[in-house]
Design a protein around this nucleic acid. Structure first.
Lengths: 350, 350
DNA sequence: TTGTAGGCGTTATCAG
DNA sequence: CTGATAACGCCTACAA
């Protein structure tokens, strides 16, 4: 591969002059510039990002740490970040943690040695990102946290209004007549799961609806766990007429459980998810859900990073994006049959 | 960040000895090794991948170039590659091309300056990868092509048996009684689309079924185009009783078109897709499809790369993975109503 | 305006 | 077996 020395020789100038032309570090004569640029064209020279990074103490790489690219919510986030980064000449190093903080730590430690321009992180469960980020920041590398925040996080963040979104969704259920509400929360050590649950509760409180504890189930963010918790909820008496699932994968499990128990959706049970994954359009019935702007989440995170790298922006940024309630087939008013089915169930159980 | 010089000072040995211990390049005394390792532990030293790469003329990075991470087929491929790479100490640089060969070229040219250990590429449309790969290989960097191959590709490849899969799927349709078959092919400049179409045709030929040209439609690999082409097919007389869609996204479009035309699936129309995306489980009816092992595609590609980087393997590798026909609800035997509907249509048109 | 030279953190070669 | 030293390709004072 061609290097600056060869350019210098080809152009008949010194190595330093080539650098000056390439970086515009000092003003050079037009003649010199032309000779250099011609040589650059001639050999198709591209500067070594490795050497440049080593010398400048900073590369054009951005470390992107996420739980799992094959979880359907994350690709959009990554794509958003990559588009913004690419346009500015930065490249993404993709790291999957599987929500393991050990794996996250391995990545965090190794990425440091790449001297990345910045880090975009969707923290793992029980992440120790706060400590790590301090040491990154000390080295002048900024870190942006996306979607959920580790404990005591004070750095940059881009999230959606989880609580607001959940509250709006629950309000909708209440407005169309549901009173027997239940929720399947995500893992409550995750801030996004906490906030979504808080939104659900806030809505109930505002409408002065009280529910007992067993109508609130905690689950992991996947379909299987959602299915299992649904079975618990759907056997409660009185049976909930609507379930707010903290993400679409859980909602899929709810739909499955309802189907297997012979409950019609939305007649017997309304379901709302969260995320607006593409597959929610294709379920039967299609899934009403809270749209989360995944692409924007990544894009804004990259924006923040680039602004800070370039020095345009110093202060810590907190961006909160809005959600949208997407109405589809899985939600409807509660049916009146409840009054019949309740005693029937009671007899069955006695 | 700690560097080798500091380790050397802490341990009271020379810089060179630290390197020898760390790389096992020459044998060292246990005493020296211990002193060095203790110092390494003490400061949490991690070698600079930048400096190491510059010096060794090769980094632990693998360039992964794909069309679009937010296309639901690709995340699994990336994840497979990342898992294998990560376990061997390699990291992935993720590049999206949007199927633009210009963008691909930008990535190809820039990645070179990172001195990557290898490249895993799902080529863009009209890719010039063949030329580029030659220059990479010349520099000792191997390239593996995944899923589809550019023209004249002679390098490493990992693909699935597209033709075989399509043939098996079509055979199934024929076996259960379909004779009015149609296909929506992918973009025929892509080898995978070509092969799938070839498999469809081979099946027909083997069963001595002839169809006229308008029952073969070419489309792009997305739902919208699939929908548009479906409308064309479903207005043909006689109407096809089964459509083989060259991927699941197209199949989604077929399902949508059928629904809008008031056709029941599978009673009036059977549909088979290709890929086995997760969302095919949730459509109504659920989608019969040809499963493509995405994760394995990526994992095997990384395997090949690592084997060649380590020198374990020199020769060009061609891996072809098998597909599986996944039977779900969108396929059934053709109904007998055809005999009524054909004249009815004919009258309508006169 | 142009050129020179030192050093970023490593590895590898060669003396001791 | 250990240590000194010259690159790898680039940037940036500083000197000319």
């Amino acid at each position: 591969m061609a290097n600056m020395k060869q350019i210098a020789k080809t152009a008949g100038v010194s190595l330093g002059s080539v650098s000056h032309v390439l970086n515009g570090s000092v003003s050079v004569s037009d003649a010199l510039r032309k000779r250099v640029m011609d040589a650059v064209e001639a050999v198709g020279y591209q500067p070594s990002q490795l050497a440049r990074g080593l010398r400048r103490d900073k590369t054009n790489m951005i470390g992107m740490i996420i739980p799992d690219i094959s979880n359907p919510f994350f690709p959009a986030v990554v794509r958003g970040a990559e588009d913004v980064a690419f346009a500015a000449g930065y490249r993404l190093i993709l790291c999957n943690t599987d929500n393991s903080h050990e794996k996250e730590l391995v990545h965090l430690n190794e990425l440091r040695t790449y001297l990345p321009a910045g880090l975009i992180v969707i923290p793992s469960s029980f992440s120790d990102l706060t400590t790590q980020a301090r040491s990154y920041k000390q080295a002048g590398t900024s870190v942006v946290c996306v979607d959920r925040l580790p404990r005591d996080w004070e750095g940059n963040s881009v999230t959606v209004a989880h609580e607001e979104g959940a509250c709006v969704a629950t309000n909708h259920l209440i407005r169309i007549g549901h009173r027997q509400l239940a929720v399947i929360a995500g893992p409550l050590h995750l801030t996004n799961a906490q906030e979504r649950l808080a939104g659900f509760k806030r809505s109930l409180k505002q409408s002065k609806i009280a529910i007992s504890a067993e109508y609130i189930q905690e689950s992991t963010f996947d379909r299987q766990a959602g299915y299992a918790k649904s079975l618990v909820l759907l056997r409660l008496v009185p049976r909930p007429t609507a379930i707010f699932a903290s993400n679409d994968l859980i909602a899929l499990g709810v739909l499955q459980a309802a189907h297997e128990l012979g409950l019609r959706c939305p007649e017997d049970l309304s379901v709302i998810g969260f995320d607006n994954l593409e597959l929610g359009e294709y379920t039967n019935p299609s899934l009403t859900t809270v749209h989360q702007p995944g692409y924007q989440l990544g894009a804004r995170a990259a924006d923040i990073l680039l602004a800070q790298v370039s020095g345009r922006q110093q202060s810590v940024q907190h961006v909160v994006l809005k959600t949208d309630l997407i109405l589809r087939g899985s939600v409807g008013p509660p049916s009146e049959k409840k009054k019949i089915s309740r005693p029937a169930r009671a007899i069955l159980m006695s």
